[in-house]
Amino acid sequence: MAWLISFFETALFIALAPLFCGWVKWVKCLLQNRRPPSVLQPYRDLIKLFRKRPVIAAEASWVFEAAPYVVFVTAVFAAGIVPFAAHHLPTAKVADLIVLVGFFALGRFFLTLAGMDLGTAFGGMGSSREMMIASLAEPAMLMAVFTLAISASTTNLSEAIHWVLETGLVLRPSFVFALGGLTLVAIAETGRIPVDNPATHLELTMVHEAMILEYSGKYLALLEWGSQIKLMLYGVLISNIFLPWGIAEDFEISHLGFGLAAIVAKLAVLGIALPTGETLVAKMRVFRYQEFLGFAYLLSLLGMLSHVILEVN
């Protein structure tokens, strides 16, 4: 039963990811005084891409064809680990937070390989920038995760959420800092402004888009879907760790329904905050990434420090 719900929850997660992306775009359009497309537009785009015949360069190796599957599957596995509408899931016991970070790293590794596979100028440039971002973002993310893990004495997501719920409302400075750090990391990892511009057509400024520039058809669809899942993953991660209230503690239908409504509401709010921030700032210079992610690391470190100094006996 638990496995069934877990499986169903993951499927729902994957199915809703394009909707979340559509919502973010919809809000962004409104904020920029444009008439938005339907929130279902990402689904239409995916269907269109799946129907198209992919074109693959003659020089492409197996990495090029395998990478979209790896990226998509790691995203799906990561979605399976993160509690969505309910926690105490069997999947959460199998893998913990460190594995989650590992899944992200694996997907990114293949994506950067694929970017370089064809030897085009833009792909290589995108891959090198992506690796620069990753090398700076991962320590910051791990630090934030460890702050949580030390407070909750576990790296298991489900147990950590349980612990947060159990202790009730406690004002924890460490959590605020960790939240800040993780948010900055999420912005960098999901390629949003100010780190990367998902809407740009300028090859020279791209990061994520430059790596997938040569993809078409179903491969592109898988990559797009994968990055949509990743965006939603960070949203769910942030809202369920730091504000877990509402999540279903058991598998009763009404609780599950309430849990689902709660997470949808939280994501909707996040989906307003993200494009609002994106509208207010311009994309930063490439060499500012270091400062930006250095700041994310600093926040996570401050989280750890304030935990040690202010919170522990």
């Binding site: 202790t167 409302l169 406690v170 004002l171 924890r172 400075p173 460490s174 605020v176 800092f177 600093l298 401050l302 304030s306 202010l310 919170e311 522990v312 006996n313």
Partner: peptide
């Protein structure tokens, strides 16, 4: 745990203390 034995006011003061350090960093 230290923090949880404090009253909500004491927590709030400590929270503000952390924010003050944070502004210094910024």
């Amino acid at each position: 745990m230290g923090l949880m034995q404090q009253t909500i006011f004491e927590q709030a003061v400590l929270f503000l203390a952390a924010l003050v350090v944070f502004t210094s960093f910024l």
